[in-house]
Amino acid sequence: MTEEILIAGFGGQGILSMGKILAYSAMMQDFEVSWMPSYGPEMRGGTANVTVIISTERISSPILRQFDTAIILNQQSLDKFEKSVKSGGMLIYDGNGITRHPERKDIEIYRIDAAEEAARMKSPRTFNMIVLGGYLKIKPLIKIENVIEGLRKSLPERYHKMIPDNEKALIRGMEIIRKLNN
């Protein structure tokens, strides 16, 4: 089993940390993992993206052009990466600020309005965990308790008090993700 995931959006949305938590929790389940960020000027104010690979085998290229899953969190990234999903793959996007919605017919498209939900939950910083929860609903590769463990390991201790909110966000994400096509 190999799952090749792209997460893309604005810098500051928690893209890189979401990828890191995903990689960390996959590692806890004995998967091979790689986490390859875009770094440098792209990150400062512009778009940020990270490639996460989870596999039962040794991982070859950490740099990819085609992905099993793309998690897209802004319009620029949608325009850039919609074509990068493998045929038969899956695209998850947040509808917030999207004016041109995904159009491909050969992939599964899911929408998760995580930004809106995070605002409603008065917990904007758990936005990325809502998205991650949605993803894990569709691809249950990793157990929630390992994600929590991943959070514990990757967050500095002063943020550990936020873990219960993150858990709530994960579960909420699982509830609100919805499929748009067949």
């Binding site: 890191k20 091979e32 993992v33 790689s34 986490w35 390859m36 960020p37 950490p62």
Partner: peptide, 10 residues
């Protein structure tokens, strides 16, 4: 190189 330097793996 920069990719291996910046990449995370186990």
């Amino acid at each position: 190189d920069g990719a291996i330097g910046q990449m995370m793996e186990k």
